[in-house]
């Protein structure tokens, strides 16, 4: 579904991605992990065309994405920080995205799932961080697209919404969607992810299943395994 070939990206002197190769087949949930500043968000933004890689090729559904925009019809994206224009209402925002995507989205189910009805007429600037994140999730899930990219989907969510989110992810997975998720909540990864992609210092350190990673590091849970990789790299 997504092929990434030798992606390089630097910001000034800071080389963030140093030749990332990745092949994500169709269907399943892929968790992109890595310490802060390892390039997770940069990688995701390159796939979405928000950032332009210095070198390398990215293909989505077998088509190169460089200078293209139509392919984004196949992708739903949840940005890490829910930045919305502050002076419009939640209902208007949902309506606007619906209008812009030229595709009928189904938001009513999601609005009731995240209990957003009381906030529909409120302006986005007046919402709390968690509520904004729920609006963000509604926008990311309301369209029926084969690829769903979630950047830190759990941030700011209360337990009830977190459970709702996990259900939602399972439901979409069963419908054959491909997920690309970044997160720091290891429990969340253990519960939902099929495959793990571990980014370290701008390179892919590990791809494979969770049990494979535990075996490789000789640790008993994911949290310790990740911490072990990070500190081992630092001591080396």
């Amino acid at each position: 579904m997504i092929q990434i070939e030798k992606i390089y990206k630097r910001f000034g002197r800071n080389e963030v991605l140093k030749g990332v190769d990745l092949n994500i087949p169709e269907g399943g949930i892929y968790a992109v992990l890595g310490p802060n500043g390892s390039g997770k968000t940069t990688l995701i933004k390159c796939v979405l065309g928000l950032m332009i890689p210095d070198q390398g090729d990215i293909k989505v559904a077998d088509k190169p994405i460089s200078k293209q925009w139509k392919y984004r019809e196949e992708i739903n994206y949840l940005p890490q920080i829910a930045n919305f224009p502050g002076n419009i209402r939640v209902r208007e925002l949902i309506h606007m995205i619906n209008d812009l995507r030229k595709k009928a989205g189904d938001e009513s189910y999601l609005v009731s799932l995240f209990k957003l009805e009381p906030f529909l007429e409120k302006k986005l600037a007046n919402l709390s961080g968690g509520t904004k994140q729920k609006v963000n999730l509604v926008l990311a899930f309301m369209f029926d697209s084969p690829v769903i990219v979630l950047d830190e989907p759990t941030s700011g969510l209360d337990p009830a919404s977190l459970i709702a989110l996990k259900k939602l992810i399972q439901k979409e997975k069963e419908a054959g969607k491909t997920f690309l998720i970044t997160t720091h909540i290891m429990q969340f990864v253990e519960e939902v992810a099929d495959q793990i992609i571990y980014l370290l210092e701008g390179k892919i350190y590990y791809t494979g299943t969770l049990s494979g990673l535990l075996e490789k590091t000789g640790q008993k849970d994911l949290e310790h395994a990740i911490a072990a990789i990070t500190s081992e790299k630092r001591h080396a």
Partner: peptide, 15 residues
């Protein structure tokens, strides 16, 4: 409009 722009850029729209 920074926020608005970021929102739009993730949609299937030409830059």
């Amino acid at each position: 409009s920074r926020e608005f722009i970021e929102l739009l850029l993730a949609q299937p729209l030409k830059r």
